[in-house]
């Protein structure tokens, strides 16, 4: 229940934040989200900046250059836009990791089942992938050039595809052995 309520609350906040256009309201919302982090504020700020800064800067600078004849209007447009981005991305970083997706979307058994399987596989693949990157790092004295990187990328991609096929077969056998397909012919 908690997860579904959290998710619905988050979605309502997102929709509201895209329907309201007053920069004071958007700014107040962003400040609220930031303050709600409490002691985690520096971490949240860091992640927020890392997620938004490059694209927000590129868009903002581009817009200032394009609208240099009327900087006041450009400033108002950018204030509204950037505060909205901050609010929405902050909200996502703050709320979504706390939501248990499997429980929030638990209205369908097969969807929940799919999410559990996919999440565990994604986490496992993420850890395995880190090893591939580390191994290349450990074996190279300097940044590798494009030919090596491509060869490494292709071998990595192929390995994960094969691993995926293998895991799918193993998972199906395990589910079968546990009686999951008994109701099917």
């Amino acid at each position: 229940m908690r997860d579904r309520a959290l998710l619905l609350g988050y979605l309502a906040a997102v929709v509201t934040a895209t329907l309201v256009h007053d920069p004071r309201v958007l700014g107040a919302g962003a400040v609220l989200v930031l303050l709600s982090a409490g002691r985690d504020l520096p971490r949240l700020l860091r992640r927020l900046l890392r997620a938004t800064l490059p694209v927000v800067l590129a868009v903002s600078l581009g817009y200032v250059v394009a609208a240099r004849d009327d900087l006041a209007t450009a400033g108002a447009v950018l204030l509204r836009l950037d505060l909205r981005v901050l609010l929405l991305v902050g909200l996502a970083l703050r709320v979504l990791p706390a939501v248990n997706l499997q429980r929030a979307l638990g209205f369908s058994d097969s969807l929940r089942f799919l999410l559990v399987l996919a999440t565990s596989q994604v986490l496992a693949f993420g850890r395995l992938f880190a090893d591939f990157r580390h191994a290349l790092d450990a074996r190279t004295p300097a940044r590798v050039g494009p030919p090596t990187a491509l060869r490494h990328g292709a071998a990595t991609a192929a390995w994960f595809v094969r691993r995926a096929e293998h895991d799918a077969a193993a998972m199906t056998q395990a589910l079968d052995a546990r009686g999951l397909f008994l109701d099917r012919d």
């Binding site: 090893d131 580390h134 191994a135 290349l136 450990a138 490494h152 990595t156």
Partner: peptide, 16 residues
Amino acid sequence: RREVGLLFQNPDAMLF
């Protein structure tokens, strides 16, 4: 990198 070598537990991670 020349003087220190690391053998990964999963050999596939090293082969490409």
